[in-house]
Design a protein around this nucleic acid. Sequence first.
DNA 1: TAACCGTGGCT
DNA 2: TAGCCAAGGTT
Length: 316
Amino acid sequence: MSSDRCKALLSWYALHARKLPWRETTDPYHIWISEIMLQQTQVKTVLPRYLGWFEAFPTIEALASASADDVLKAWEGLGYYRRARFIHRSAQMIQSDYDGRFPNEFDDIMKLSGIGRSTAGAISSFCFSTFTAVLDGNVKRVLKRWYAKPETGDKELWLLAQQAIETADDPAIWNQAMMELGATVCSAKSPSCEQCPVQHHCASAFHVDISKEIRKPVAVLDVHWRIHLFICPEKGIWLSQRPDSGIWAGLWTPPITELEECPEQEPAHIHQLTHRRLHLYPDQSETEPRGDGRWVPSIEGYALPTGIHHLLEKVI
DNA sequence: TAACCGTGGCT
DNA sequence: TAGCCAAGGTT
């Protein structure tokens, strides 16, 4: 690692870092929640949700003692709902195994649900100043470009990331600076090499070949779902809870049946997920709900998937 | 190991 | 505009 590169990056970060609420604290609970929210999720999406979380659950203890439904409700709309369940489970683990205090050992942080090496590295460096690297999408892209190795696998990238952070004085700022560079200047589609503080130390400067960085495309499968709507003025709407695994696990929806074939009618709504395109066909022809579920006077207290919200807005 | 898991911003 | 993809982890 070039020391000049290190200095240049840190000077740039000192001047250009975005002011983000989770950068104003070293409190592990706050950092932890921010890191989970930010997994595969853009800063702009997290910003309006971050502070509200702590109004709902001011402490880890409050989170641990909340119901699973309340936690999912607080996560509603953020996607990847397993993350909310992991947070809940981890909060309970912190209560029982660590006396309610977020663990300060890297290995213990890694044991918590939903926290892998990169997230643990971030939390540990931000809260406890350990020299533990982060290797998120930003850092991977920056490192691959610095060394002009677009095909490099995670194993080598982890070595490079760890080697890099060990030359820094402040591991927390180093990790933040690497992510900030990737998120702003060294962006995926159109890197701004002319604005890059480390352009003189980058093997790909001004000739980044985006075509070599393309990921393998995800296959999007079309599925057709009948959405059984039971709505009545006295009882409200009938909702049932999704199973523990799969799409929208644990969330509440009207009963859904998967159709074998694409029906003749047009879907009332199409909801696009990463690997699925959900074609939704509302049906109000049946009179009495059957199976598991409950009448709810209002959907307000329940965590519903965004696609179902959209459908209900259209139909009702 | 590779498939799976959401949503919204960006170009 | 429609596709790409973002502060990944789990199984």
